[in-house]
């Protein structure tokens, strides 16, 4: 106790951090866990008795289909982000320092605009009479507008657009750490470009790949406003389900259970990421 009094600044910081974690992280999450095991009630949203009905409902074929479709779209988004982000981050780490700063700046600039606004901008581009269709028609490549909005593709485009930087940044960081002499050593020992890529570059950048997947895959299942704006009624994400359960269907236990499933998936990915880092001798996240 005397120590605490002697170091008021340290104490204040600790109280702030722990208070933040307790009241704004732990408590809300516990509330969600609590809500997920209770019974739905029209008046008070949740009531006793405790039940696992909400979790059982997750495996209802109707919802299961929504979840799988959501997972599929998130997986496609992640794959596209990885396919664009990996070479992008690689070349980013190769250019001169000044251009690197500029390119990273350009990558971050879109964050200064609200993502909702940017998604609406995308809608203007993809709409039937939007910029893209007009451009293609004036080029003579198509005769009549193509249906782009309200498709699965539009949702994926929107998600990739919003989430690509989250893939590139962790990848850029692992490519920055990839020492030139490891690649030299690999060539020196008789490995060509392809073998070096498979045996050295891929395993060395795996933690970045997993971090990128972590930062893209789960948000991609949660960004409910993207399908709301671009996807129409058939391309729902888990995020839409959760939002609908809380705001429209008023089924809090089910919404809470769905969001816990997302959290568990996140925890699993973080665990895998940690393992991959330990493999190359770095400490966990």
């Amino acid at each position: 106790m005397r120590n605490l009094m002697q170091q008021p600044f340290r104490t204040a910081v600790l109280v702030l951090v722990w208070g933040w974690l307790l009241f704004l992280v732990l408590a809300p999450n516990l509330l969600v866990v609590g809500a997920s095991v209770m019974t739905r009630s029209p008046g008070t949203f949740i009531s006793l008795p405790l039940t696992l009905d909400a979790y059982r409902q997750l495996f209802d074929p109707l919802y299961l289909e929504v979840f799988l479709h959501s997972l599929y779209m998130a997986a496609v988004t992640t794959t596209v982000c990885l396919l664009i982000g990996y070479p992008f981050a690689w070349s980013l780490s190769k250019v001169g320092k000044q251009r690197q700063v500029l390119l990273i700046f350009l990558l971050i600039v879109p964050f200064w605009t609200n993502s909702l606004v940017r998604t609406y901008a995308l809608k203007l581009i993809l709409a039937t009479n939007g910029l893209l269709n007009s451009a293609l028609m004036s080029l003579g490549w198509i005769d009549e507008p193509v249906q782009m909005l309200y498709t699965e593709g539009a949702v994926v485009i929107g998600l990739v657009y919003l989430l690509l930087p989250f893939m590139i940044l962790p990848l850029y960081s692992v490519f920055e750490d990839l020492r030139e002499d490891l690649l030299r050593a690999s060539h020196d020992l008789g490995a060509g470009r392809f073998s070096t890529f498979i045996h050295v570059i891929v395993p060395m950048t795996l933690p970045g790949v997993l971090a990128g997947i972590m930062l893209v895959l789960l948000p991609a299942m949660g960004l409910f406003f993207v399908p709301d704006i671009l996807g129409g009624s058939r391309n729902l994400l888990v995020g839409n389900v959760i939002k609908n359960q809380f705001l429209d269907a008023r089924n809090w236990p089910f919404g809470a259970a769905a969001s816990i499933m997302l959290t568990l998936a996140m925890a699993f990915l973080m665990f895998a990421h940690r393992l991959s880092k330990r493999r190359i001798g770095e400490d966990g996240v």
Partner: peptide, 9 residues
């Protein structure tokens, strides 16, 4: 190599 350049993984 000067810093050994062992493959850490």
């Amino acid at each position: 190599f000067q810093n050994y350049a062992l493959f850490p993984h």
